[in-house]
């Protein structure tokens, strides 16, 4: 063991000891609001007409009220993040208590569309990205970071022998991969380690020349690369591209007519192939 490994192992031991001891000495939380499922003050609402909450019901049946009715008024509060805690029970950190006995609360679909259905893990990005403070009404930041910066494989996202099967899925749908992984860090270092990447250490490469791309023609490989360049970046560095593309134009249609802003912003990317007169090449 190196000194660094010893220190890390020591820190791990310290944390384990901390956990075991705190199990014995730590005190549980004893905060409950009388078993109520929501916080509601009838007197605070008596300034409103009765019909606004009890339409067509003179018995005052609260079940006639939908959350949407509540939200119609409380949404007008200047801080949206406070909207949930106005009625719902919350933890000390302000998050809603979503597990009430055997019942689990989920937001209704009309509220930003977070359906939380069985395909939710795969399509929550737009809702979560557009207003993460809304998600924070129920979720802790660590729930996001444990996957998005995670180091242990979440099996509900990556099931069934993912190490061997991920290539196929990531090839088909790698935009999803980029939500959590960087190809040039996460993918490439492992692909180098396992000898898959072209610049892997010699002790891990195949004795024969790489057969990864099989008998596919350069045209086929090029076509797939253009529709899915992220997949290429998980194994290849830029030098793989510039080997051929120093003589074959890789730029998209009409590139020379709109490359001036790019040159102005960062000439360095252009200069990797075009050693001089970069500006003159742009119309």
């Amino acid at each position: 063991m190196t000194g660094r490994q010893k220190r890390i192992t020591g820190c791990l031991g310290m944390l384990i000891a901390f956990l075991l001891t705190s199990m014995v000495t730590g005190t549980p939380v004893a905060k409950n609001v009388g078993g109520l499922k929501i916080r509601f003050s009838h007197s605070a609402h008596q300034t409103q007409p009765c019909e606004s909450c009890h339409p067509g019901d003179d018995k005052g049946n609260l079940e006639n009220i939908s959350m949407r009715q509540c939200f119609g008024c409380h949404q007008k509060a200047k801080r949206k993040i406070d909207t949930c805690r106005t009625c719902h029970l919350v933890h000390p950190d302000g998050r809603m208590k979503t597990h009430l006995g055997e019942r689990v609360l989920i937001p209704p679909a009309w509220l930003k569309g977070p359906t939380h259905g069985i395909d939710w893990a795969g399509n929550h990005a737009t809702v979560a990205g557009s207003d993460s403070k809304f998600c924070a009404n129920c979720h802790r930041e660590t729930e996001c970071s444990s996957c998005h910066t995670g180091r242990m494989r979440p099996k509900k996202i990556h099931p069934a022998d993912w190490v061997n099967t991920h290539g196929n899925q990531s090839s088909i749908d790698n935009p999803r991969c980029t939500g959590c992984h960087r190809q040039q860090q996460f993918c490439l270092s492992c692909h180098r380690r396992t000898g898959v990447a072209p610049d892997a250490p010699t002790s891990r490469r195949q004795s024969k020349p790489s057969k990864y791309h099989g008998n596919a023609s350069p045209k086929k490989i090029c076509r797939r690369a253009r529709s899915n360049i992220s997949a290429c970046a998980s194994c290849h560095s830029e030098s793989s591209c510039t080997t051929c593309h120093s003589v074959i134009n890789p730029h998209p249609v009409g590139f020379s007519r709109r490359c001036k802003p790019l040159v102005k912003k960062n000439k360095r990317a252009c200069a990797k192939c075009h050693h001089d007169d970069v500006e003159k090449r742009c119309r």
Binding site: A109, T178, I229, S230, A233, C241, P252, F255, R268, A269
Partner: peptide, 29 residues
């Protein structure tokens, strides 16, 4: 969707083919 790389990368300058998905979902509870 077109992938975006760091500003320094030549991959941004390549002729990437944009992907366009039409997605249909139905969820029932």
């Amino acid at each position: 969707y077109r992938p975006v790389f760091a500003l320094d990368s030549i991959f941004n300058l390549f002729g990437q083919l944009g992907r366009r998905d039409v997605v249909l979902r139905y969820a029932h509870r």
